[in-house]
């Protein structure tokens, strides 16, 4: 009977360690645009906001330190926090979906075309 290893891998593709999702740089799937964060716009957001540009009077979110809408919306958890504020966007994992730019009440994140970079 033959040995069942595939190219050094174990049967069933089990990997003998955890946290392996980090190895998969999903940013390589990004096709068209990258998010660019404008810190000045984010910080210029009045605290607390009186009339939320997105949700109006019904908005219960207090911007901007307590906003973090982009952070919580990112499906790939690639928006990093620094001291409770939005920090760098990790492009290793960003797929360019643009959800962060869509949810930002102040337009502090804009999607810029990456075309020509490939």
């Amino acid at each position: 009977m033959k040995e069942l290893r595939v190219n050094g891998h174990l049967p069933g593709a089990t990997i003998p360690r955890g946290g392996t999702a980090r190895d998969n740089k999903t940013g390589s799937w990004r096709t068209s645009s990258i998010p660019v964060f404008n810190r000045a716009v984010c910080e210029a957001c009045p605290r607390p906001v009186q009339t939320c540009p997105t949700y109006g009077e019904s908005c219960s979110v207090v911007c901007h330190r307590d906003c973090l809408l982009c952070w919580i919306s990112c499906p790939d958890a690639c928006i990093n926090l620094e001291n409770g504020c939005i920090g760098e966007i990790d492009l290793d994992y960003c797929k360019g979906c643009g959800l962060c730019a869509t949810v930002c009440p102040r337009g502090a994140i804009v999607m810029i075309s990456e075309e020509g970079k490939w």
Binding site: V6, G12, P16, N24
Partner: peptide, 25 residues
Amino acid sequence: HPITVGPFDGLHGYFFEFKAAQVEA
């Protein structure tokens, strides 16, 4: 001793080889 079960095996992975190993088994 953490392990990863059922990892994603993309276009450049070893899906084909794992299937062949299943046939072998």
